[in-house]
Design a protein around this nucleic acid. Structure first.
Length: 431
RNA sequence: GGGGAGAUACUCAAGCGGCCAACGAGGACAGACUGUAAAUCUGUUGGUUUUACCUUCGCAGGUUCGAAUCCUGCUCUCCCCA
């Protein structure tokens, strides 16, 4: 029996706004829905994941999901976003990104099924590139009034005097270009639903409006809430940047760590959105977490599930092993017990710098080891500060300003493990 | 085209001739406490050969013993009027 899509995403807390009649419409039979994704990089980051999960639930309910890459719209940037000027991607880059994204999407969506509801990937660049400006304003622009466009929140905000920046004509036009995508998919794929983040509501309704006015059709809209964290910081970002799905951009270890660090407040919300666990399973987990919060069952399950899906079971195991070594009660002796292969495996993805063993002969002072020789820290001043703050440890033992690295610090005769605080790890290999 | 306001470190935002590497807030990082959570308290937050020096306050010049602060030109942004 197919699940009811709307019921499913509703209990998961993934619905922010819903056009009336959507559920009935979907229940009438298999439908087609799409989510837009900007192909500005050759990898998705976890901020994209909500939309992807929506598509997957949609597919599981027997409908056909379409992922739309905004090759055209991505060059513009909509007015509500904090996004700065976008760069025009050349076609080669665009195709490269498209392939990479498809590979990642295929971990969630089924593209190959023989069934009607195989997922599909389209790129609006393909139908926008030859659409001339004159054609566009005649065929599309004519049907929407500026008054209508100005009533959108994203536009109003930029027009109000509180806004520090003006809005370019290009940004103003964004909703029309995006709206046209919906119309195009409506015509070519019989696509009747667009989903997206709550900030997309205005753009989506411009699309349904175009469908209504030009084709006298009916399009539907569903938005999910913006994912927020309880502490107010941006979801999916760390100081060093986005959390990417690409293992070369964000190592599986770091990826795993991001999820395991989820706060209690957020964990329950996230596990509903980012895993496919059933309602019963999640409720059981929440109960056990409340009884024994220090075990962090929720965070652990969340991190396990999503790391295994995005990367692999093997990658997950390694990430957990590394976490165990780095955050468990392990000591220098434990480190020494690891053979070299395991050792390297465990620390895969940790910044590693190779240095000449000669440096150790007269001892290598910590400031040089942290900064000058390795660039782990930006400057000698920063290294000195960190040492003064008592935040540096060598092989899991705290060291001070006067510590000097010698051969006796080497693990397996080659490695030195350096930590700054609990969460930053660096590795030096002496050859 | 006319008038007005503005550009300071990651962000916001003081400073308006020396005491300014630049108040304050947020963020970030670290320490304590914990559960790799939250909250809280503490410290740090341009660089170096660190009681001193160097580079930084939109850009380029100038005045001055001395400028983020004064003058000139330029660039960019916002607002109001036409």
């Amino acid at each position: 029996m197919k699940r009811d899509f709307i019921d499913e995403v509703t209990w998961r807390g993934m619905v922010h706004d819903l056009m009336p009649g959507t559920q009935e419409h979907l229940n009438e039979g298999p439908r087609v829905a799409y989510v837009g994704i900007d192909p500005t990089a050759d990898s998705l980051h976890i901020g994209h994941l909500v939309g992807v999960m929506m598509l997957r639930h949609f597919q599981l309910a027997g409908h056909k999901p379409v992922a739309l890459l905004g090759g055209a719209t991505g060059m513009i940037g909509d007015p509500s976003g904090k996004s700065q000027e976008r760069n025009l991607l050349d076609e080669e880059t665009l195709r490269h990104n498209q392939n990479a994204l498809k590979h990642q999407l295929s971990k969630f969506l089924d593209f190959k099924t023989e069934d009607e509801n195989s997922a599909q990937l389209v790129n609006n660049y393909d139908w926008m590139k030859d659409f001339s400006f004159l054609d566009f304003i005649r065929d599309v622009g004519k049907h929407i009034t500026v008054n209508y466009m100005m009533s959108k929140d994203s536009v109003k905000k930029r027009l109000s005097s509180e806004s520090k920046d003006g809005m370019s004509f290009t940004e103003f036009t964004y909703q029309l270009v995006q709206g046209y995508d919906f119309l195009h998919l409506y015509r070519t794929q019989d696509c009747t639903l667009q989903m997206g983040g709550s900030d997309q509501w205005g753009n989506i309704t411009t699309g349904t409006e175009l469908i209504r006015r030009i084709d006298q059709g009916k399009g539907f809209a569903l938005t999910c809430p913006l994912i927020t964290k309880a502490d107010g910081t941006k979801f999916g970002k760390t100081a060093t940047g986005n959390i990417w799905l690409d293992p070369d951009k964000t190592s599986p270890y770091k990826f795993y760590q991001y999820w395991i660090n989820t706060s209690d407040e957020d964990a329950e919300k996230f596990i509903k959105i980012f895993t496919f666990l059933t309602k019963e399973d999640i409720e059981a987990l929440v109960r056990s977490h409340k009884e024994e919060p220090h075990l962090r069952a929720l965070q652990s399950k969340l991190a396990d599930e999503i790391t295994a899906t995005v990367h692999s079971k093997e990658a997950l195991e390694k990430a957990k092993e590394a976490s165990q070594v780095l955050f468990g009660k392990s000591t220098e002796e434990d480190l020494a017990k690891l053979d070299e292969a395991t050792f390297l495996d465990v620390f895969e993805g940790v910044p590693l710098k190779e240095l000449n063993k000669d440096l150790l002969e007269n001892g290598l002072d910590m400031i040089a080891a942290l900064s000058a020789e390795t660039n782990f820290l930006k400057s000698n001043g920063e290294a000195r500060r960190a040492l003064k703050e008592n935040s540096i440890s060598v092989n899991k033992t705290k060291v001070g300003l006067d510590y000097v690295l010698t051969e006796s610090d080497l693990i397996n005769g080659k490695y030195v493990l350096i930590n700054k605080g609990k969460k930053n790890t660096y590795l030096i290999k002496f050859d």
